[in-house]
Simulated scan of single mutants.
Amino acid sequence: MSIKKKLGMGIAAAALGISLVGGGTWAYFSDTEVSNNSFAAGTLDLAVNPSVVIDVDNLKPGDTMVREFVLENNGSLDISSIDLATAYNVIDAKGDNVDDFGKHIKVLFLENADKTGDGWVIGDYNDVISETTLYDLQNMTPDASENLQHWITWLFGLNGEGSGLAAGTSDQMYVAFEFVDNDADQNEFQGDSLELEWTFTAHQTEGELR
């Protein structure tokens, strides 16, 4: 056999060996599994029932109006706090006001029965948690879901629920409005009206390790 043939066969054999080695790198066991994952966000869904807390006319100084409403958490996430923002507009019927009608409307926040484990009885002003005027309240942002209680309920261990509002639960709220009789001339408010807007803003609880 000639030298050229021997070299040619050697080259061919070497190429075949490289090919076999290369092909052999794919000759191993394998197994594949697919992980299908998802992320779904929860919901905050706060409702106020009824949506109109108070609608009253023909007021006079000294009148007090007690109203109740329900805050409902219809979402899937717990609520840590509910901010209450107040805004109002006074309609001066005669154009003679020198004072703000909102300074003469007192707001009395009464016990939240679900938070204290107690109920509110009409005329029982021992259940007043805090009070202020609409004028001052517009510069405040109280937490409507906070567990504030009168000392009597604390004394007898009527603690009820904690602050916030768990998913699928509700709070029975009580509030009183008083047109304060200041024993002075309040004739400027005759025929006037006040439009009150309460905005409740729910906040989520803190993030957690899941």
Score class of each variant (00 low, 15 high):
residue 61 P to Y: 13
residue 32 T to C: 02
residue 35 S to N: 11
residue 118 D to M: 13
residue 22 G to R: 05
residue 198 W to H: 00
residue 97 N to K: 10
residue 69 F to V: 10
residue 195 E to P: 06
residue 113 A to N: 08
residue 69 F to I: 11
residue 121 V to L: 06
residue 37 N to Q: 13
residue 177 F to M: 08
residue 52 V to E: 08
residue 133 T to W: 04
residue 206 E to W: 04
residue 58 N to A: 10
residue 161 E to S: 05
residue 41 A to G: 06
residue 172 Q to T: 12
residue 68 E to W: 15
residue 91 I to F: 07
residue 170 S to T: 12
residue 79 I to V: 04
residue 187 N to R: 10
residue 134 L to I: 04
residue 190 Q to N: 14
residue 19 S to N: 10
residue 71 L to W: 11
residue 203 H to P: 07
residue 90 V to P: 00
residue 46 L to H: 07
residue 165 L to C: 04
residue 147 N to F: 07
residue 136 D to A: 11
residue 154 W to L: 12
residue 49 N to A: 14
residue 98 V to A: 13
residue 32 T to Q: 08
residue 36 N to H: 09
residue 127 D to C: 13
residue 112 N to H: 09
residue 134 L to P: 00
residue 9 M to C: 08
residue 104 H to K: 09
residue 36 N to S: 01
residue 135 Y to G: 00
residue 73 N to M: 07
residue 3 I to P: 15
residue 195 E to N: 14
residue 59 L to M: 09
residue 94 K to F: 00
residue 156 F to D: 01
residue 138 Q to G: 06
residue 143 D to C: 02
residue 209 L to P: 00
residue 96 D to H: 12
residue 67 R to P: 15
residue 163 S to C: 05
residue 158 L to Y: 02
residue 17 G to R: 04
residue 58 N to Q: 14
residue 201 T to E: 03
residue 15 A to Q: 10
residue 122 I to Y: 03
residue 178 E to R: 04
residue 81 S to K: 13
residue 3 I to E: 12
residue 60 K to P: 15
residue 183 D to N: 04
residue 182 N to T: 12
residue 193 S to V: 07
residue 106 K to E: 15
residue 116 T to M: 02
residue 139 N to S: 15
residue 14 A to K: 03
residue 157 G to M: 05
residue 176 A to H: 01
residue 91 I to M: 08
residue 192 D to K: 02
residue 207 G to K: 00
residue 162 G to F: 13
residue 68 E to C: 05
residue 204 Q to T: 15
residue 56 V to Q: 13
residue 48 V to T: 05
residue 136 D to Q: 11
residue 78 D to W: 03
residue 102 G to V: 12
residue 52 V to N: 10
residue 80 S to N: 10
residue 10 G to M: 14
residue 6 K to T: 08
residue 40 A to D: 12
residue 205 T to Q: 10
residue 188 E to K: 03
residue 64 T to C: 11
residue 113 A to C: 03
residue 56 V to C: 06
residue 40 A to H: 02
residue 123 G to V: 02
residue 123 G to Q: 01
residue 135 Y to Q: 13
residue 200 F to P: 10
residue 88 Y to H: 05
residue 172 Q to S: 13
residue 47 A to T: 15
residue 86 T to H: 11
residue 29 F to C: 03
residue 139 N to R: 08
residue 33 E to P: 07
residue 52 V to M: 07
residue 151 W to L: 00
residue 168 G to M: 09
residue 135 Y to M: 11
residue 115 K to R: 03
residue 28 Y to N: 08
residue 114 D to M: 10
residue 103 K to C: 02
residue 138 Q to K: 08
residue 139 N to A: 15
residue 202 A to D: 01
residue 27 A to M: 05
residue 146 E to M: 14
residue 169 T to C: 01
residue 185 D to W: 09
residue 88 Y to C: 04
residue 20 L to A: 05
residue 40 A to P: 00
residue 167 A to I: 11
residue 150 H to M: 06
residue 129 I to V: 11
residue 171 D to V: 11
residue 96 D to V: 14
residue 162 G to W: 15
residue 77 L to Q: 14
residue 69 F to C: 08
residue 44 L to H: 09
residue 166 A to T: 07
residue 124 D to A: 02
residue 14 A to E: 02
residue 12 A to I: 13
residue 129 I to L: 14
residue 162 G to P: 11
residue 129 I to G: 09
